[in-house]
Amino acid sequence: MNWLANNLDVVGGHLLSHLLLAVPPIVFSFLLAIPAGWLANRVRWLRAPLLTGAGLFYAIPSLPLFVVLPVIIGTGIRDPLNIVVALTLYGLALMVPVAADALRQVDARAVDAADALGYPPLRRFLGVDLPLAGPALLAGLRVVAVSTVSLVTVGAVLGIPSLGMLFTDGFQRGIIASVLTGIGATVALALVIDGLLVLAGRALLPWTRRAPRTEAALATRGAGA
């Protein structure tokens, strides 16, 4: 506790860097996964590459990806952009199959009814398909958020500032309090973001109170480190 009190500014700085690295991938992967999932359902020949590719990509460990990615996208290895792109890709790997599944399971009768009422396609998608897929999308997004917050720490071994620096500094100098603070802060941050997503879900999807089954389906898929 003493250590934490004396290093509050350091921890705060790392927390801020951590947020800046974690939030964009969560947002980007969510926004990109919806059109990608829609495409996977609509364009037959895209379905297998998108879904199998997502599954296979998820098998790639994070640290090697952080090292390989700069060669492909032309950034430096210590560039925070690397982490953002890599984590967005992981988020997509998790989220695209979820989005495809969620959109496909929308009750066809509701969609037919909207068509019969003369909804234009985009308005039908945004007003009928998307909200009905909402609970499953939210379940997937929560998994993405929590694992993204945890994965950001890995960048610390390459020198990219985040709460993970508390692990590397703590290890180098043998300060257990630093490592424990890092674990606590990372888990707490993940829980806070998860809680905010749940609240957002309650506000945007007021008709849902029970967790959809996607959560259980995802339980067997651990997060790659």
Binding site: V143, V146, S147, V149, S150, L151, T153, V154, A156, V157, L163, G164, F167, T168, G170, F171, I176, V179, L180, G182, I183, T186, V187, A190, L191, G222, A223, A225
Partner: peptide
């Protein structure tokens, strides 16, 4: 376990 940072566990 998903929230638990691997690097934290390894260094601890």
């Amino acid at each position: 376990a998903r929230a638990l940072p691997t690097l934290g566990v390894v260094t601890l």
